[in-house]
Write a protein that binds this DNA or RNA. Structure first.
Lengths: 277, 277
DNA sequence: ATGTCTTTGTGAACGCGTGCACAAAGATTG
DNA sequence: CAATCTTTGTGCACGCGTTCACAAAGACAT
């Protein structure tokens, strides 16, 4: 998942560990599904399977919220849905603004799930004057000149940034100055924010790179296994990837890498959004 | 950030801790920016600031890759870019398929950053026959009937799922059966996969819920602070959120929550994608 | 060459998160 | 009402990740 808290790393807020908070939405989703099927109770084992976690972990997570289960029976689905919703603050209304209405911003605006959990898209904002007034997801795009006014008149405290990388920090600064204290960042940049402001980032490019790493490792292990079985006779196998460019004493090996970097530096830096470099 | 590894939790692959792997793309991006500005070397301190991490952490991360720095000077930017790229497997070509070409899928397809890091969109796949042949991001959408054929003929090992929640697991199963071993999931579902397959998820809804939690906590602390200063005279303050619905012995308190759940269950479950419930 | 100054690389301590394993609690049955 | 059975809640131990703090390494000046 495109994850990444940025600030407030281990701030175990009110005794609930950050790791637990991150799992509560998962439990909530599983519980909501059960609720829709009118299932009255679940055991920690069943719910854990549905949420893709360990049952001991789930029980410990719930223990931070209080003792909402019944021994020998399990957890009351509806009651737990309510408790978790309340704990996450989903029983209240959260107006949200989306800044940067490109492909991604429009996709986010069109997402129907916002309203389903207490989140409400209060405004769509873009810097392009040509976008102003244009309806996206049944809502007129507003120009970023009015950003501060929009934030304040709607009491917005959560902002979503879906701008190109270059615009993200300035937009972030304006959001924060206008009173936003939580930001979800889709732009491929590390945002600098003052204390007290939470930033979470969604970064497709990073996720893909992590997958590529594991993919490469799997391929390597496979190759190793093959080499191990096939070899045993001949000592020298295929040259390992490590040995490709002679590290040298630095100085001009760098030139090679330089060429590479120059080749691929094109589209990054100012792309629409979603995946960072 | 919308993150979340699923399987292979702490598989410290080849001695490189998972947490370090997750930060390498961050360093790489910062280094690429320096490279474009033709900066020859950076200190761990400078680079750490740019990447938004602690310098000790950065040095330790790099120490897992080898000793690529020079004491008293810092790190050679180009050399490090090359080493990290190689470590992440970005020096090779990774064909990727995107399944589910709705708003989000189209946004992803239009993202220009794919090609910039060794990733190449090999195909766009959708289950809607009306989409077949329609060009998106200059590439014709193909019907999901041909999914297996497409995967195999292109040697795809990484798949991106941007379908509605209900379609995600079946699509995942087909991808895996066809040979995909890494999946980036945008659908709001927990995917079940066999051992050896990596799944990462990007889940907007979860990210927003986590932000809401912290937002609520901030508001609560503020209120507490105000209460603490203003009160001191009157013992009973505003009823805490905790006491709103009398927990009762369970049984019909559930009915209240039930009504709530019914109200908000609408748009979830089968939404386009991006944010899960 | 020698000394000084900068910055890396890492040993060690600490804290958070995870998972085991079991005792306590309650439901259920006879 | 006693016995049995199920499932929660948690004490404990372990391991990963983070951070501190410093010795070693090298650049640079004299």
């Amino acid at each position: 998942m495109a994850t990444g808290r940025t600030h407030r790393p281990a701030t175990r807020s009110r005794g609930i560990p950050e790791a637990t908070v991150a799992r509560l939405p998962l439990y909530l989703r599983a519980l909501t599904a059960l609720s829709e099927r009118s299932v009255p109770t679940v055991s920690s084992e069943e719910l854990a399977t549905a949420a893709g976690v360990n049952s001991a972990k789930l029980r410990k997570d719930f223990s931070y919220l209080g003792s909402y289960g019944t021994r020998g029976v399990g957890y009351d689905v509806e009651y737990l849905v309510y408790q978790i919703s309340r704990e996450l603050g989903l029983t209240q209304d959260w107006p949200v603004v989306i800044v940067g209405i490109g492909n991604l911003g429009a996709a986010l605006a069109n997402y129907g799930g916002f309203a389903s959990r207490g989140f409400r898209v209060a405004a769509l904002i873009d810097a392009d004057p040509a976008m102003a007034g244009k309806p996206v997801a049944g809502m007129p795009v507003q120009h970023s000149d009015d950003l501060e006014k929009i934030i304040q008149s709607n009491g917005v405290s959560i902002g979503v940034i879906a701008t190109p990388a270059g615009a993200a920090q300035p937009v972030c600064d304006r959001l924060v100055a206008a009173g936003v204290t939580s930001i979800l960042n889709f732009a491929p940049t590390v945002l600098q924010v003052p204390d007290g402001v939470d930033v979470r980032k969604v970064d497709l490019s990073i996720e893909l790179q992590i997958l590529a790493f594991h993919e490469q490792r799997k391929a390597g292990e496979e190759a190793d296994a093959i080499a191990a079985t096939a070899a045993a006779a001949d000592a020298v196998v295929v040259p390992a990837a490590d040995s490709v460019p002679p590290p040298a004493t630095r100085g001009e090996t760098a030139a090679d890498a330089d060429a590479d970097a120059a080749d691929r530096k094109g589209p990054d830096g100012d792309v629409p959004a979603v995946m960072p470099a």
